[in-house]
Design a protein around this nucleic acid. Structure first.
Lengths: 221, 221
DNA sequence: CACCCCCTTACACATATCTGTAAGGGGGTG
DNA sequence: CACCCCCTTACAGATATGTGTAAGGGGGTG
């Protein structure tokens, strides 16, 4: 079994639940926990420098903001930073995120080893995930149905830029101007119109307002 | 100290964290837990029927949907049901909700005794909250600043109706027609225009799209 | 090269949005 | 009653939105 595991999770109750479950169920010699990404990253760095690196990182995705300055503000930031200094570390994400395309991108872009979706069985799932990952397998919560009829529509960076500015109250004309200023291309009002109209079809929206409502609700922007 | 406490919380890790913290820190004789509102309500009912009622309910607000049919689908539903059969029970809500006006309404409408906001100190806060509530005081997470500059703008039922339909993709003309059909008054396009424009000012939005984005993000609609 | 597809862009037109102004109605007050 | 305030409503006009059509350009293919 893993000998040295780090947990990064900002909710104290969740954090405590994970720690207590893992100490009881799995024979992990050293189980450390952190409430902040930056501190978690520091522990990884120090452990490696001392020749006793962590073998597994269990992390949440969202970390609440507070008065403390943060360099790493999300689980993805943390994963990137950790992988940069210790590519071999195993990573399990434990989060509320249910969007299949977001979870998919964690495996594809961040090369995580397991994904557990918080819920009524997440501790059991987490235990299973750890065992699987220890065997060099990957683990994915069964409730994340990659092949479902949920939106697997990929929003590219350009789509996201438009949508973010729309949600920010800019008109399409203003967006076109901003894109021209920032050398983002394409940048004609017409093309932006076309893109947005395509997204209406994709997401079954009648107008911009509904489109933004849908995407905001789903956490896609 | 409270002798009999019930915890309603659907995330297994959070649930476990609360249980383990309270068993260690507080001398509570009987600490039960449930993952579903309906089951929690049943426990309260049965305990009361057996002459050994719960003295305190600690509940979340949001409970994930799954394949099981649910009568009570939220913490507020549970609180209402429990208060209806046992008005004297003490209630502490433990949730992610940070909106002051929503928290305010829990105290005002549901007459809860404590509110703990999930975060990096929520277990410590919860312990304090239990001690305060046991002394017949109320407890409120310090991070919920009721007098802050956050939006304490009250949206009335009419506002919500308009906003919901806007987020649903209806034009203002269509909303006016729908209101006329459903005998909702006022219902002229002009008045709806005026209301929405007022909300632009209230929330600092430039147009409908941004307004809906803000309100959706804040969970107000 | 010709051909095709896809993307970008311009333009046009009907509709919707947003912001004024102004008229009228109900309720409270002196 | 006169007066005032607030809300509803109508209307007008400048902009913005959504949806067509069509022209042109790049890249791949035969």
């Amino acid at each position: 079994m893993f000998k040295k595991v780090l947990i990064a999770e900002d909710f104290q109750d969740t954090n405590a639940g994970i720690v207590s479950a893992l100490s009881n169920k799995l024979n992990i010699h050293e189980l450390q926990e952190e409430l902040y990404c930056d501190k978690a990253f520091n522990r990884v760095k120090v452990a490696q420098a001392n020749g006793a690196p962590f073998e597994l990182l269990i992390t949440d995705l969202l970390f609440k903001e507070n008065h403390i300055d943060r360099k790493l503000t999300s689980g993805v930031d943390l994963i990137k930073a950790v992988k940069a200094i210790q590519p071999s570390i195993k990573i399990i994400v434990n989060s509320m995120e249910e969007n299949p395309s977001k979870v998919k991108s964690l495996f594809k872009e961040q090369h995580i080893d397991g994904y557990v979706c918080k819920g009524r069985h997440s501790l059991n799932e987490l235990t299973t995930a750890i065992l699987e990952v220890y065997q060099n397998n990957i683990y994915l919560s069964p409730q994340i149905n990659m092949a479902s009829n949920q939106h697997i529509i990929e929003l590219d960076e350009f789509d996201i830029s438009i949508l973010t500015e729309l949600a920010n109250g800019l008109s399409k004309k203003e967006i076109a101007e901003k894109f021209k200023q920032n050398n983002i291309t394409p940048n004609s009002e017409s093309t932006i119109d076309k893109r947005v109209s395509k997204l209406f079809d994709d997401f079954g929206a009648k107008n911009s307002t509904q489109l933004i409502a849908i995407l905001t609700r789903d956490g896609l922007i």
